[in-house]
């Protein structure tokens, strides 16, 4: 019996751990936000981080958007063809991208590229006593390291999401017009007809939350790092896994509130 229950026990423990961690994360985010008021924003660091997030993820997000839009167009075609509504392919691609896939895929890609390097950079600083050195020099590490990253992610995630969705819609168009050989004007017209501005806004609002999640969790895990270079690897992995879970979880919650 114990054997049979043990997977459930494991899941239960995991959930408890995640809830416990959520508490620490909220306290950490609060501490970081307080440090903005205690000092003021370091714009040099903020710009550096924004460039880092933008440059580092530009190509990967462009490619992700492109292929996702292309495959959406292709998949939608098989369904739409049956009921003879192929003119709905454009709106399907556009709405999926702006409301859902653009924000989520961008967030997951940025987690993989930037979240991991935030965690490992700060983690390395932690195990090599560079964080202690900051504190000793009377520099608040939250202010110096967390805030620029959290703000940069908040600003850059929506921008990268727009990029991803836009390229996705273009990808869908390419397949629609050149692979499926359908009337390309219909694709664009129908998007105009069915897409509302709120679809875009709400998608971008999601992206802002995802940005906060990625940078908060990744920097938090960096600060938590112990155990030398092995520890850096372990905590970086945790940062990526935890960020991804929280993104998907928050996506569901936000979708049910916003749409």
């Amino acid at each position: 019996m114990d054997e049979l229950l043990s997977p459930f026990e494991g899941i239960g423990k995991y959930i408890l751990k995640i809830i416990d961690e959520l508490g620490s994360l909220i306290i950490y985010l609060w501490e970081s936000v307080l440090s903005i008021f205690r000092y003021s924003i370091n714009f040099g660091n903020l710009i550096d981080q924004m460039i880092f997030i933008g440059m580092d993820s530009f190509y990967v997000i462009g490619l992700t958007g492109l292929f996702t839009g292309m495959v959406l167009s292709l998949q939608a075609y098989y369904a739409a063809k049956i009921v003879g509504v192929t003119y709905m392919i454009g709106p399907t691609v556009a709405l999926s991208m702006t409301r859902e896939l653009g924000p989520v895929l961008t967030a997951l890609m940025i987690t993989a590229r930037c979240g991991s390097s935030m965690a490992s950079e700060i983690g390395t600083m932690k195990v090599t006593e560079q964080i202690d050195a900051l504190e000793v020099m009377a520099v608040d590490p939250y202010y110096y390291l967390s805030i620029p990253r959290i703000l940069a992610a908040m600003i850059m995630l929506p921008i990268m999401t727009i990029l991803c969705s836009l390229i996705g819609i273009i990808g869908g168009y390419i397949v629609y017009a050149y692979v499926l050989g359908l009337n390309h004007m219909v694709y664009i017209e129908k998007i105009y007809q069915y897409m509302k501005l709120s679809d875009i806004y709400n998608g971008l609002l999601k992206a802002v939350f995802f940005g906060i999640i990625i940078a908060t969790i990744s920097t938090f895990k960096g600060f938590e790092t112990t155990g030398g270079s092995k520890g850096v690897g372990r905590f970086t992995t945790q940062a990526v896994v935890l960020s991804s879970i929280y993104i998907l979880f928050a996506d569901y919650i936000l979708t049910s509130i916003l749409f």
Binding site: R38, T128, E129, Q130, D132, A138
Partner: peptide, 21 residues
């Protein structure tokens, strides 16, 4: 904040340098 004021009186040399790499 008060602790940081005290810390400004200090300099510290770490065992492995703790230089910002």
């Amino acid at each position: 904040k008060e602790l940081n004021e005290i810390r400004k009186k200090f300099g510290m040399v770490f065992q492995d340098g703790a230089l910002f790499d």
